[in-house]
Design a binder for these strands. Structure first.
Length: 466
RNA sequence: GCCCCGUUCGUCUAGCGGCCUAGGACGCCACCCUCUCAAGGUGGUAGCACGGGUUCAAAUCCCGUACGGGGUACCA
């Protein structure tokens, strides 16, 4: 195919959410797949929406994801002259006309005439003159229908009598979405429009304008299935927590986010789900995109993220996780323990809780269940702690293997003495970490150090007997 | 209401008329491994919305119904 030109055209409404990110990704994939251009256009026809803050809210997440654009960002608000010209052209050719009715008035007229809600062309032949507050409406043909061949959905046909004479210029003179969309896509020579299904119904209107303006060949349209919440409603900023920035701060990796997003509505022919972006680019095609909406599943996202976290080298992991850790954490220790952490977390923000015990001065809070199980139910615990204190004070702390055999040795000896299985590791874990669950002890103990280890064993013993 | 789109395990999907007693992934359950929690391994659970056609043959094609969603703004 001729090199495609696609665009991601979000409205600057606060922040970028995962649904928009998915649209951006599919556009980007398509452009990269066929060696075309990916264009960023900020859809700020409503002047109030233009501010640096809002622009950053779009640009920063795209950068984080690594979805680089070849042209732009362009601003719709800066293309006002072209829009005005197009509106003038439509008015001059009689395909659009002025209307001084308010929305409320046209609603009332419809009701009085016993027609369905909406606008019925009341001002078509009233000869209204342009003035402040007057809108321009497009004259939709009475007869016939408009057909759009969607790359994903197939042929979509809308009868003209279900369309009203929609507004293309507001009372304040600004162009509406339909008009700006047609003009900008034409001027930017967009070949493929890839966006959410919620925009499918607007396509015939844009096509009508396109033809009325004599623009020639229409871009190819591809409407992606919507991303939905657990109620199967389209992801919305107001009710769903879907800001991309939130996922960034929770510790999702951009590669994982992209990979997961690519899986919603699309799948590789070989069914391999988790794979490098480069491979996804190679395999991507719009024809393989399916039609039904997809639930944005945090559980699966977490799984994908964990796979990516596990794939990091220890050094990469330590470097990446650093900003989620308190400043007093020793990164060299984090790197040494990286593999154990990587298989236990699915987001980077979870890392600290697995490591905390190594970097605090003392354990002041023991998990009560773990204490009960290891210290109270394990009747030998007091003896184990005493023995552990004695044995470990004579062992060098530089070799995990020495620590292991010393600790397990205590358990074996006591087992023989008592004639029942004695676990030495469980009480040790609770004494050192305050918790019943955690990473393997031996390597971690070399970083905790002998002094803290012995103090914590003593503290636990004191608490047990006191 | 009207218009448009959709419907395969709980979820994401494979399937584009016979290879399907429907495959994979996530989740869940069990077992193995194991001080713990994980990770890993093995096995299991669960689905073609319904009704008519077409055809020798339908998850796959057609029609209808039901259900879900989207749109219906001087938002985009």
């Amino acid at each position: 195919m001729a090199t495609p030109r696609v665009r991601f055209a979000p409205a600057p409404t606060g922040y970028l959410h995962v649904g928009s990110a998915r649209s951006a990704l599919f556009n980007w994939l398509f452009a990269r797949r066929y060696g075309g251009q990916f264009i960023l256009r900020i859809e700020d026809t409503d002047e109030s929406k233009k501010s640096q803050e809002f622009v950053d809210a779009i640009v920063e997440p795209l950068r984080w994801l690594g979805l680089d654009w070849d042209e732009g960002p362009f601003f719709q608000s800066e293309r006002r002259v072209a829009h005005d010209l197009a509106i003038q052209q439509l008015v001059d050719s009689g395909q659009a006309y002025f209307c001084d009715l308010s929305a409320a008035d046209s609603q009332r007229l419809s009701t009085e005439a016993g027609l369905r809600a909406g606008y019925h062309g009341w001002s078509r032949d009233r000869g209204v003159a342009d003035a402040a507050g007057v809108v321009v409406r497009f004259r939709v043909p009475d007869e016939g229908s408009t057909v759009v061949d969607d790359l994903i959905r197939g042929r979509v046909k809308i009868a003209h009598d279900t369309l009203d004479d929609f507004v293309i210029r507001r009372g304040d003179g600004s162009p509406t979405f339909f008009l700006a969309n047609a003009v900008d896509d034409h001027d930017m020579e967009i070949t493929h429009v890839i966006r959410g299904e919620d925009l499918l119904n607007t396509t015939p209107k844009v096509k009508l304008l396109w033809e009325a303006l004599g623009y020639g060949r229409l871009p190819q349209y591809a409407h992606l299935p919507l991303l939905v919440n657990e109620q199967r409603k389209k992801l919305a900023k107001r009710r769903d927590s879907v800001a991309l920035s939130d996922f960034v701060s929770q510790g999702f990796l951009p590669e994982a986010m992209l990979n997961y997003l690519a899986l919603l509505g699309w799948g590789a022919p070989d069914e391999v789900e988790i794979r490098p972006l480069g491979e996804i680019v190679e395999l991507f095609s719009l024809e393989a995109v399916n039609k039904s909406s997809a639930f944005f599943d945090l559980v699966k996202l977490a799984h994908v993220n964990q796979v990516y976290i596990k794939a990091l080298s220890a050094a990469e992991f330590a470097q990446t996780v650093a900003s989620w850790l308190p400043a007093h954490y020793d990164l060299a220790v984090v790197e040494a323990l990286a593999p154990e952490l990587q298989q236990r977390i699915s987001t980077l923000s979870e890392a600290a809780s697995w490591l905390d015990w190594i970097f605090v001065d003392e354990i002041d809070d023991y998990d009560s269940k773990a204490w009960q199980r290891a210290m109270v139910k394990g009747r030998a615990a007091p003896t184990v702690l005493v023995e552990l204190g004695e044995v470990l004070s004579g062992v060098p702390f530089d070799d995990p293997e020495h620590l292991r055999s010393a600790v397990l040795g205590v358990g074996d000896r006591l087992s023989e003495q008592i004639g029942a299985r004695v676990m030495s590791q469980a009480p040790l874990r609770v004494a050192l970490t305050g918790s019943g669950a955690g990473i393997p002890l031996w390597e971690a103990m070399t970083h905790l150090g002998k002094e803290k280890t012995l103090l914590r064993i003593a503290a636990a013993h004191k608490r047990l007997s006191g």
